[in-house]
Every structure is written in C-alpha cells, then in structure tokens.
Amino acid sequence: MDLDVFVSTHRAEWDRLEALLRRRRGLTGAEADELVALYQRTATHLSVIQSSAPDPQLTGRLSRLVARARSTVTGARSASWRDVTHFLTHGFPAAVHRTRHWWVPTALVSTVVAALLGWWIGTHPDVQASIAAPGELRGLTRPGGEYETYYSSHNAAAFAAQVWTNNAQAAALCLVLGIFLGLPVLLVLFTNMLNLGVGIGLMSSAGRLDTFLGLVLPHGLLELTAVFVAAGTGLRLGWTLIDPGHRSRRTALAEEGRAALGMAIGLALVLFVSGAIEGFVTPSGLPTWARISIGVLAELAFLGYVFILGGRAAGAGDTGDLESDGRSETVPTAA
C-alpha cells in the first residue's frame, strides 16, 4: 500500500471528523449521522494502516481521533445515585444470594472446624502448653484478662475503624485470591477459624466459655458471615477458572470478577456495621443478653436482606454484574 496516496485520499475525511468533534454539541441530525459514518471509516483506515504500513505519527493521530469519536458516539456513562441505589437494593444482595450454594456450606464447615479445634485445645493441656506458658494462659483467660480487656482497651471509634479495616482487608483477600483456584482462600479461612478455636478452647478450659461467647457473638455473627460470603465467593471464582460452564473462560471470569468486585464494596459496608458493634456494643455495659440480641438482630437483618431482597432481585435476573450499558459486548457462545 502506498501510504502517501492513502493519506492524500482520506485526509479530508479525517479533517472533517476532527472538525465535527470540536463542535459536537451543536451538531444537526445530518451532521451527527455524518460523524458516525466518518468514525466507522476512520476506524477502518486505522486498522488498514496498522496492518499494512504502520506509521507511528499517523497511527497516533488516528488512534486519538477514533478514541474521541468513540466516546462521542457511544457516550460516556457516569455513576449516579440511581446506580448506588440499584447496587444496594438489587446488585449486591442478588450477588450474595446467587453465591449462597458456596458460602452457606463454607460457613457450616468452618463453624464445625472452629468448634472441633476449640474442643481439641480445651481438652488437651499439652496443646494449651504449646500455645503459651501457664502464666500467660492465666493472663489471657482470668476475669479482667486480655480476652476481656481487648475490646475496651482502646478508644471505641478508633478501635471500630481498625477492626473494620482489618476485616475488610481479609474479605478482599478472599475475593481476590480466589482466582488462584481458591487455595489461598482456604488458608485465610483456616487461619480465622484457628484463632476462633484457640479462644474457645482456652476460655472453655478455664470454665469461662460463656464469657467468651458473650464477647464474640454480638459482632462475630455478622463479621464471620461477611468473611464466609467473601470466602465462598472467592472459591466460586476459583472454580469458574476450572469450569466456566457454557460461557467462554474469559467471559466467565470477567463476569464473576466484576460481581466479586461489587461484593467487596458491599461487604465493606457490612463489615462497617460489625466493626461499629465491636467497637461500641461489645465493650459496653449492657447486659450480655442485650449485647447478643443486638448481634442476632444485625445477623437476621442481613440474612433477610440477602434471602428476601436478594432472592427477588436474582429471580428477576440480576446477577450483581454491571448493567449491560456499563460492560463490553460479549461474543455468543454455544451451550
């Protein structure tokens, strides 16, 4: 291809497209149609030049021209309060509901693992001795010990913020690391259950399991549920890499990855609530039954949000992915 001849033949079209882009807000209907046609032709010209006679300066000019024209033709979509409302009432609860077959079993198995670890540690003094010296164990489990003062030893607001940040990071890790076939997610999950099991075992061996549960349950119900949702979603993302189903692997990972990103934002909000409970309710002077009741109500509210509101949204076809105008077109695949 003679590049000079090609440029002289089509330069007028490129100049005309550039002129239309400069005054795109005052275009007539005919000029808007002309802009679309010139955008399509210029995109074709760019493809021809890149494949036949690549010229860096010309390619750069046409690339910028095509990008500006694409933005004008397709329109730039900006987030709005409508998107926030839709996310909170449809997208996020639908995504959590859709992954319930992963995170509910994850929650059940993890709870059993934590209980078994607690029983094992609580009934085996030699295991307790491997965790810490007897004096240190007494300092942890005695009345007014570290397990009790942990929740009241810091400013409530600062402590709630710290807890929220740490838990949000753990949830995000579970979601992101799912891409590695879900194996790192299992490690993060086991580490959390081991820490819980150690607390159960040590406090039960000291005859103070009721005190421990009274401290953990108010915030722990909602906090652990969020972690289980994140872990289950991460495992589902890892399984998608193995079995994408009727979709191509790239399409499946893109869809599930976008939904997982949205869930990370939603779970950060859930963990904000659990962090506030841990910072202000757990160390408060309320009776144990009142503190646990607050935790149970928060947990029931979240489950109702997921299974009622999320179930309806999922039944209506919402998956938690971006709306169709916010994602790239996909190529149809055979089932």
Rank of each mutant, 00 (worst) to 15 (best):
D126L: 12
N167D: 08
A107K: 05
L309N: 06
A12F: 06
S80L: 06
L177S: 01
R249F: 10
T141N: 02
A264D: 04
P54K: 04
S324P: 12
P54E: 02
V7K: 02
D15M: 10
T191V: 14
A268R: 05
V198E: 01
A170W: 00
A301N: 04
F87H: 02
S51A: 15
L213R: 07
A76P: 04
L267F: 10
A67V: 11
V270F: 13
A43R: 10
H97P: 01
L186E: 02
L58W: 03
P93Q: 05
W239I: 06
T99M: 14
L187Q: 12
H10N: 14
G304Y: 08
D325V: 11
W119L: 15
V163P: 02
Q128F: 02
H101T: 13
R250H: 14
I277E: 04
L286T: 05
T225V: 14
W81A: 10
L181Q: 04
T149P: 08
P287H: 08
E146T: 15
V306M: 10
G275A: 12
G285P: 07
V185Q: 04
A79H: 09
S110E: 05
A19P: 03
F6V: 04
V84C: 03
V104H: 07
A156M: 09
L38W: 00
V296F: 01
A43V: 04
G197S: 07
L222Y: 06
L189F: 00
F92K: 00
S153F: 09
T149M: 11
A254C: 09
R11Y: 07
H10L: 09
A298Y: 01
S284I: 06
G60Q: 05
P93K: 01
G310E: 03
R82K: 13
M1A: 12
R16P: 03
L297H: 06
A334L: 15
V73P: 03
V127W: 12
D321Y: 06
T282Q: 08
S63K: 12
Y305L: 01
R61I: 01
P287V: 07
G295S: 03
I179H: 03
A316G: 12
D2N: 15
V163N: 07
A171N: 03
V296E: 01
E256F: 08
V227G: 10
N195R: 14
P287M: 08
V73D: 04
H10F: 13
I179Y: 02
R22Y: 07
A133G: 12
